[in-house]
């Protein structure tokens, strides 16, 4: 790999820009492809397909074995509610490779001391979430079980392509929530996207254990979704 190529991939990663590095495995020739951007590079279509599936691999469509290495921007996790569970969840998700943002309009919860090194936004979730514009590489978890805060966040989440939406709360809380969202105009198929009660059923009790259950469910959705 050329130094210049390495520097460019690092710059693209810093700018959170998807890039695919194509390398001819016989000659070592390499070039960068920017999926979903203008331009007509060799193997553009294949690179877009690989980026969409987040799957690197060898293609042979131009008569040579070319390795397409996908460097997608990091997955994102938006946590609504700077509550106790959010603390271990933010740390574990960061270790797993997520870019984590915590949203809570209550400044006492969303303090730097409680979330060192995490992006914390003290705005109402509908505004904050709209600004973050969740995409298909974003997971969203609401943790306040306060409808004033969770519901507006879930409404933005349901209008997005987020690959995972989870909401903390008991079965009773969750069915009341689904009823409210139904009244707000969301259909059964929409609200069925929300995982609630949140997390895999592993009997989690402590905040950290619940964070494990939530992150495990997010991983399941990410990796086992029908291709």
């Amino acid at each position: 790999m050329k130094d210049a190529t390495l520097q460019q991939v690092l710059a693209d990663q810093a700018a959170k820009r998807a890039v695919v590095l194509a390398t001819d495995l016989a000659s070592g020739e390499e070039w960068l492809i920017y999926p979903f951007e203008a331009g007509d590079d060799r193997l553009k279509k294949e690179a877009e397909d690989a980026a969409r599936r987040d799957k690197s691999g060898v293609v042979e469509t131009i008569g040579a074995k070319v390795f397409l290495n996908v460097y997608n921007p990091p997955l994102r996790l938006i946590i609504v509610g700077a509550v106790h569970i959010a603390q271990p969840l933010a740390r574990m998700a960061a270790m797993t490779g997520y870019d984590v943002t915590v949203i809570d309009p209550r400044a006492a919860f969303a303090s730097e001391e409680r979330f060192p090194g995490v992006t914390v936004i003290t705005e109402w979730p509908d505004d904050a979430m709209t600004a973050l514009s969740p995409d298909a590489r974003t997971a969203i978890v609401t943790l306040t079980h306060d409808p004033k805060i969770d519901d507006p966040a879930l409404e933005v989440a349901l209008r997005s392509a987020a690959f995972y939406i989870g909401a903390l709360g008991s079965k009773k809380t969750h069915s009341a929530r689904l009823h409210r969202l139904g009244e707000a105009g969301f259909g059964d198929n929409d609200v069925a996207r929300i995982c609630g009660p949140v997390g895999l059923a592993i009997g989690a009790k402590s905040p950290a254990e619940i964070a494990v259950a939530v992150l495990a469910q997010i991983t399941e959705r990410l990796r086992q979704s029908p291709a």
């Binding site: 790999m1 990663q13 690197s56 290495n69 997608n72 990091p74 490779g97």
Partner: peptide, 27 residues
Amino acid sequence: MTADLDNVLEQAAAWRGAGKGVALATV
């Protein structure tokens, strides 16, 4: 792709910046 805990490319650039010979291996 999922991020590694070690950022391999950043390490490659750091070593190159320090004037070292560097090789990259990819599955």
